[in-house]
Amino acid sequence: MERRSVRHRRAAPSVWEGLRYRGGMGQWAWVLHRLSGLGILLFLVLHVVDIFLAAFGPEVFNKLLFLYHSWVFRPFIVLLVFGVVYHALNGLRLVIVDFWPAANAYQKPMWIGATALSLGVTAISILAFFWEG
């Protein structure tokens, strides 16, 4: 009986438990890191395929360019820009904490800095869209 309850307690976390996490900054940092990672991977799959199609000449490739030129897809590209920069900078925070434990005390300012910088880069990229017209 004792053994069974111990085994039950050590069971892997449910999806909900994984999503719920512990709350607070760490939860948001982690949720955004995971979602941005999966989103970037999804785009990467699309991107490798569209560049692969360039091997078949300009007609095929230029037909796909509406993905990058159309305003319909711009919101997704804005999300991609934020996702890439956030994933890079938040990832850097994780690497710093992993290899320099003393940095643990600065996790919150580092995360706020990473997020603020990501938002800044995203804002400039939105302005660039309007600049290009």
Partner: peptide, 8 residues
Amino acid sequence: GLSNITFD
């Protein structure tokens, strides 16, 4: 600039 990207 994203709008300038083409096959070229």
